[in-house]
Structure formats: structure tokens, C-alpha cells
Design a protein around this nucleic acid. Sequence first.
DNA 1: AGAAATAGTCTCATATTACGAGAATAATCT
DNA 2: AGATTATTCTCGTAATATGAGACTATTTCT
Lengths: 273, 273
Amino acid sequence: MSSLDKMLKVLDLFGEDRMSIQLDDVQAAGASRATAYRYIQSLCDSGLLAPTTGGSYVLGPRIIELDRLVRRADPLLTRAGGPMRDVSARLGINMMLCSYYGDKVMCADIVWPERSVPEYYERGRPMPMFRGAMAKTILAHLTPYQLRNIMLWHGELVREAGLGENWEQFRSNMSRLRRDGYCITRGEVIPDLVGIGAPVFDAERRVLGSVVFALPEARFQSAGKEELVAEIKTLAARITSAIAGEAGVRPAQRAARPRKIRSPVPEDASSVE
Amino acid sequence: MSSLDKMLKVLDLFGEDRMSIQLDDVQAAGASRATAYRYIQSLCDSGLLAPTTGGSYVLGPRIIELDRLVRRADPLLTRAGGPMRDVSARLGINMMLCSYYGDKVMCADIVWPERSVPEYYERGRPMPMFRGAMAKTILAHLTPYQLRNIMLWHGELVREAGLGENWEQFRSNMSRLRRDGYCITRGEVIPDLVGIGAPVFDAERRVLGSVVFALPEARFQSAGKEELVAEIKTLAARITSAIAGEAGVRPAQRAARPRKIRSPVPEDASSVE
DNA sequence: AGAAATAGTCTCATATTACGAGAATAATCT
DNA sequence: AGATTATTCTCGTAATATGAGACTATTTCT
């Protein structure tokens, strides 16, 4: 592992529970005092970290600044807000927007009018890759290459999630979801919550993410599946055309963007380094 | 400059206008093709960058994830929201919350009920360090050391901002603002907008940031300065006690946290390296 | 489907520079 | 003001970042 990676791993020290780190924490992660300071210094200079009192460091202003840029630049976020709020106002259904980043699915936005349902989701919360309508909807629309790689490197998880015992099954399951144009899951992320998702694409029909309704089992039963599916499909289509209609940034280039999900030995997650 | 710094400077390529970068951009910033890929690779592995199609890269999911951690951890943000919305509901005044990060002032939150006023501010938007009530309020409450360093390294900017021609004047100006407990500026950031700010402190009475009302000159005139000042002071005090009252994280440590604003030669910003 | 083209990775020798230990400095606490 | 602790600096050594180019992988085009 290069020093660059080691330095960036300092950021991994932060988590739900740990909002500030100290010199010791960096040293414990394997670095001499001087090197720990050097890493911290570079990260502070870049604004990713910020010093506070007592020799502890917190995440810095650059994070917030960069997040703003992401919010401004993300076509999903900028184009989905309107349509989502429209539908929310009309139907009063909780829904969220999920973004896909090569090897991560994340909640990008939520509209949560039904306050009686606990608000588990939240912008920035990482989502499981193989469970829930948000993830499956996206998975289904990945390219064949990406799907094959996922089966190769995360086969065990795919099987656990019941997405198929082998490549053929996985492929055909995904294919079916794709043809349906929607995905319904029940309690896969949160008990009693039904997820109804549909995919959002960019101008080149590559999947960008998904919108999903999240409602309690009871309300799902009374509302009627067909209507909800029609609604989510329409919503997703509206967002997609809002994005694609944007005369904006033309890629101008062709070419590759794999997603190696890097791991030298497929199927073996036990070797940490 | 170390390779760490060089790698992190890749993040600086992003900006309001530039939402994706390419290999060339990194190479142009001074790196061979291999090195450029190495930097990109490390940044992608850490999630700070994410590959898209056509060989371009965008800011990655880790940014969003980390911003969420910042939002959750920032006492300013978590404790100020309630009081700010209370006051907003009662007075219908636009206001914002500013955070201070050693060498940067940033907008952390806004409440903007008065929609007729353009919403220039936004979470994550960097703010000028020497102009506007949000900045000056914070400046005034920095420690003597910090103030002295600022005068040393940013003297010219201090003079330009009319904060004092020399250390004595600067010091006494800041001292006065501190005694007042509030700061009013007129059109220093946005024409016609009056800013009325008050400082927010942590449990150790260190300045964390500021809350400021932002209203058009006309409304400021009719509302009456005294009342607004009283309101902002009360609001800031409420937030401060909400933060200080928090039995939460005890620093447990003493010790230093300067703010070198690093630059080997004071007053000389011309030397880039 | 398959082939051409482009994106991304790997190899290897060399020189840059990251590293570690301790001294010097800067900032707070008493 | 002085003691204490956090942070930076110095410097020789060894590790490793670097650059050029070959190689692989993925995508788009046919």
C-alpha cells in the first residue's frame, strides 16, 4: 500500500461513533509520530481535516465545500427534486432517491411526508448493494460486464441475497427486473417497509440511480400495487427525461469505464491486504 | 511539496464550473500519465473520486458520506437548527449559521423564509474571511494569538477591509466588536443586504461560529436596530447554552491548537511554493 | 455477435523523497 | 510570567514514488 493510500485511510478512522481523531489514532493505524503528523498536516492543508483543541482533529471544511459541489453537479439530485416533491404532494408517500457510484449505492435525497414512519434514510447514508428495491433496481440495469464482475467478485453475497445461485440465474433474474421496469421488495432493509423502485437513466440510457417509494406493508396493501408501480415508473421516467433533455454536458468521448471492484482473488474476501 | 499534497491537489481541480476531471487535467497539474493514474486510483479507492464514462472522474460517494458525518457531529449544526427555526417562524427573518474552521468561514445552514430576497447563501459556500457580519463576528472572538497571526499574514487584507491600519487599530476594533457582542455590516457581501451577527461559543467559550440575520436595507430601517440586535444576541446565547449544556464530549486534554495559516514569509503571498 | 479503439494497469530501473528519532518551536495552562 | 504539551523542523538513510512503455480490459462500432 502506498503512502497515498495510507494517508487517505486516516479518513476511514471517522465513523458514526467517532467524530474526532487524535494523533494516537493515526499512529495506531501504523505510522510513526512524525509520519502521523505529516499525514495530518497534508490533510489539514487540503481542508479535509481541521484541527480543534486538545490535539484532536475533525473533518474539515473542504468536505462541506465538496459536498456542495456534488449537490450542484449531480444531475440526479438537481433534476429529481421537483418531480419527487410533486408526487409527494399529491400522494403523500415517502420516497427516496438513490445514487449509484460504481461500487456503492447511496441515499441521495429523501422526501418523507408520512412522518409516522421512522426516518431511517438520510442523504449520505450508505445502502446495502444487494438488498432493497433501491439497490436491485440499479443492479438490474448495470451492463453485462458489470454484472458478470459482480457475480465473480461478490458471488457469495449475490447468493445470500437470493439473486441467483449462479451466473445464469443471476443474469435472468436481473433481466426480468429490467423488463419489468420496476422492483418491489418487502422488509429487506427495514422490517415492515415495502420498497417500490424504478430506474433513472442519463441521456445515454446508463443507469444513474433509482427512485423508490417506501411504505408500510399495510398501506401498500390498501394502495394497490398496480397504481403504485405506475406512479413510480412515471416519476422515474419524468426524472430521466428531465436529465436527458438537459442539453448540457456532452461526453464527447467514448471508451471505457469498467468497475473492477478491485480484489485480486475473486470470491475471496478474507485476504485483507 | 510532497506527493501527498500533490495528490490532494487533484481535488482542487473541481469547482463551480468544473464538475468532472479527466486524466489530462491531472497530468496538466504536473504528473506523468502513470502518476496521474496512480493519484486517481488512490482517490477512487478511497471513494473521494468516482469514475464515470469516457475517462472522466467526478467527486465520489465518500464525500457525501463524510459530509453526513460532519452534519451529525457538528454541534453548531445540530443545536442551532431548532432555535433558528423558532426565531424564523416568529419574525420571518432570513438568517444563516456560519462555521469557523481555523482558516475558513463557511455557511453551515440557512433559514430563508423571506423568499423575495435572493438566496445567495447555501450550505458549503465559502465566505469571505474579512467581510460581512458572519466573518467579523467570528474574527472578533479569536484568541489574541490568532488575531496577531492574521495581522501578520493577512495584514493587507485586514487593511483593505478597513479593520485597522496596524495591529493596534485591528486589536482595538476587534476588542470593541467583542464588547458589543454583535456586529452589523451593510452590503459588504451582497449589495443592499444588512448583516446582523452574534457569536456562538462552545463550553470553553471558544468561538465556534456565528448566527446572522440578513435583511434588505429597507426592512432593517423599519424593524429597528435595537430589537434586531437583542434578538440575534438572544438567539446566539440560546444556541451557545444548548451546546455548552450538552454533557457530551469532554476534551479531557488541554494543549495547543494554533492556526499557522502557514506561509513561510509573512505578508508575501506571491511565492507560490 | 466480433474487432478496433481507448481506458486503465503493470513492470522495472532510477532517483526522489518519505521515514524515524530527537531537537527546536509555538501555544496553552497554571 | 513559566511550565507543559502539541506541533514543526533537521538530517541521514532506506524505502518507494516516478516515468516510459508494454500489456490488459472494456467499450463502442460494425
